[in-house]
């Protein structure tokens, strides 16, 4: 039995608190306690991942299907590694939009996969709410790997894990989330998670990339990067999609970088020990200058990727723990 599993079982016997949800569809609805449970368990998996022998048997005999309706390399790989390091059997299914057009609906696909008795489905879909819809049609646990512009809970969890390991408790920190908030599921999940954990959250974007009524989320809203990151502990940059750079939302890459790209000069407005994050993949020279992205003293970007595997291991572990296999 792995050290991680022993450790977590010890925690359980001390205080019987289990992850209270069948699925992980979003940060919305998670309590601080539930989030801390995931993050604490993730810590032990960070240790496992740094060992020579990275494999344990926590998910032995379990089947995990990565079902991706949208292209992804890093998230899918991260889920795959997480499952394999825990000893589970992992299958990757990329469903291109073309085969959906051939007639099979999301629900048909879910039913088909459900009949194969998976224990966990890790799902990414280009439409908001699609993962929830799918979760209603299957017996197994479902992890949302990103749905449309709605949520990307494992990203927010790995971001929180990264922050916690560098800055201690999240409560009381000031975090600025900057860039294309409007189209970002990462931003929504992070706003919810960081607020729940007691951070002060700022969001920074040109008005065209700011969602309506975002002030109702309890965040401070800024249209100017320097003001927005002033005295922040963490500066979180978001990816700007190619198709949104050419006139519909912002006039040009040049103009966007000039006002909203993170450079060393602008980062000087944040706290002297402020750290920089990015969910990837980065557009260097669009939302972030390479000099900052690659600065090992300021950038946590590579560590975020490392935490991603540990956090996903924790999620897979918690959602399968004490659960019988899938019996449709």
């Amino acid at each position: 039995m792995s050290a991680a599993r022993k450790n977590s079982e010890k925690q359980e016997s001390e205080a019987v608190y289990r992850f209270p949800h069948k699925h992980l569809l979003g940060i919305e609805g998670l309590t601080r306690k539930a989030i801390e449970l995931i993050l604490d368990l993730s810590d032990s998996y960070v240790e496992q991942n740094r060992r020579h022998d990275k494999k344990s048997d926590v998910l032995r005999g379990r089947t995990i299907i990565n079902l991706f309706f949208e292209n992804s390399t890093r998230t899918r790989t991260s889920f795959e590694l997480a499952g394999k390091r825990l000893g589970g059997d992992v299958i990757n299914m990329s469903v291109s939009t073309s085969s959906i057009k051939k007639g099979e609906t999301l629900i048909d696909t879910s039913m088909t996969l459900n009949a194969m008795h998976p224990d966990v489905l890790c799902v990414r879909h280009p439409h908001s709410g699609a993962v929830k819809l799918l979760s209603e049609k299957v017996n197994c646990a479902v992890i949302n790997g990103g749905d449309g512009t709605h949520e990307h809970p494992t990203q927010a969890l790995l971001d929180a894990q990264t922050i916690r390991r560098h800055k201690g408790p999240i409560e009381g920190l000031t975090v600025a989330i900057c860039g294309d908030i409007l189209h970002s599921r990462v931003a929504r999940s992070n706003i919810l998670l960081l607020s729940t954990m007691g951070a002060r959250v700022r969001i920074v974007a040109p008005p065209t990339l700011m969602p309506t009524a975002i002030d109702r989320f309890g965040v401070e809203v800024f249209n100017n990067l320097k003001d927005g990151i002033a005295d922040c502990d963490i500066v979180m940059m978001l990816r700007l999609q190619q198709e949104r750079m050419k006139g519909m939302f912002v006039p040009s890459i040049r103009e966007y970088f000039h006002f909203f790209g993170l450079t060393r000069e602008k980062l000087a407005f944040a706290k002297p020990d402020a750290l920089v994050m990015h969910p990837g993949p980065m557009n260097r020279g669009v939302e972030i200058d390479s000099e900052i992205a690659d600065d090992i003293d300021r950038s946590l970007i590579r560590e975020q990727v490392e935490m991603g595997v540990a956090v996903r291991m924790a999620c897979l572990d918690l959602l399968t723990r004490d659960r019988p296999g899938n019996e449709p």
């Binding site: 908001s128 749905d147 512009t149 709605h150 929504r188 309506t212 109702r216």
Partner: peptide
């Protein structure tokens, strides 16, 4: 409809 609910759900909205 555009507004807080659409933003929470991450749905494209009509003002």
């Amino acid at each position: 409809n555009e507004g807080e609910i659409a933003t929470r759900l991450g749905l494209s909205a009509i003002p």
